[in-house]
Computed example of a mutant assay.
Amino acid sequence: MSQADDQETVQMLSAKVDILEKIITGGRYHQDQTNHGITYIVWGRKECPKGETLYSGVIGGNYVRHSAGGGNQVCLPDIPSYGQYTLGAQQVGRMYGARYHTSSYSHLSYSHGKIVKCAACYNDKSSTSIMVPARVSCPNGWTQEYYGYLMTQPDIGGYYRQEFICVHKDLEGQTPSPTYSKETYLLSPIEVQANQFPGPYDVTKELGCTVCSK
Rank of each mutant, 00 (worst) to 15 (best):
G51C: 08
G51E: 11
G51W: 04
G51M: 04
E52Q: 15
E52G: 06
E52I: 15
E52C: 12
E52R: 12
E52D: 14
T53G: 10
T53P: 12
T53N: 11
T53W: 08
L54R: 07
L54W: 03
L54C: 06
L54D: 09
Y55R: 02
Y55C: 10
Y55L: 14
Y55A: 11
Y55E: 06
Y55S: 15
S56R: 05
S56W: 09
S56Y: 08
S56N: 13
S56D: 12
S56I: 03
S56Q: 08
G57S: 13
G57R: 01
V58N: 05
V58A: 07
V58E: 08
V58Y: 09
V58K: 01
V58L: 12
V58G: 04
I59R: 12
I59K: 14
I59C: 10
I59P: 11
I59H: 11
I59A: 15
G60S: 07
G60H: 01
G60N: 00
G60L: 04
G60P: 05
G60W: 00
G61V: 00
G61L: 02
G61P: 04
G61W: 03
N62L: 09
N62S: 10
N62P: 08
N62H: 10
Y63N: 09
Y63F: 15
Y63Q: 05
Y63K: 04
V64F: 05
V64T: 02
V64Y: 13
V64K: 00
V64Q: 01
R65M: 07
R65N: 09
R65V: 04
R65Y: 08
H66R: 10
H66T: 04
H66W: 12
H66C: 04
H66V: 02
H66L: 11
H66M: 05
S67A: 15
S67N: 13
S67F: 15
S67E: 14
S67R: 11
S67L: 09
S67H: 13
A68I: 14
A68D: 15
A68G: 05
A68P: 03
A68R: 09
A68C: 09
G69S: 09
G69E: 11
G69H: 13
G69V: 02
G69A: 15
G69C: 12
G69W: 10
G70D: 10
G70W: 09
G71M: 07
G71F: 08
G71I: 03
N72F: 14
N72M: 10
N72T: 13
N72D: 12
N72H: 15
Q73D: 09
Q73R: 07
Q73H: 07
Q73L: 08
V74Y: 02
C75E: 01
C75N: 00
L76D: 06
L76Y: 07
L76C: 11
L76R: 03
L76N: 01
L76P: 00
L76Q: 07
P77K: 01
P77T: 00
P77Y: 00
P77M: 02
P77V: 02
P77S: 01
P77C: 03
D78Q: 14
D78V: 08
D78H: 02
D78R: 02
D78L: 05
D78E: 13
D78T: 11
D78A: 00
D78S: 15
D78N: 14
I79Q: 14
I79F: 06
I79R: 06
I79W: 05
I79K: 13
I79V: 12
P80Q: 05
S81D: 10
S81E: 04
S81G: 05
S81F: 12
S81M: 03
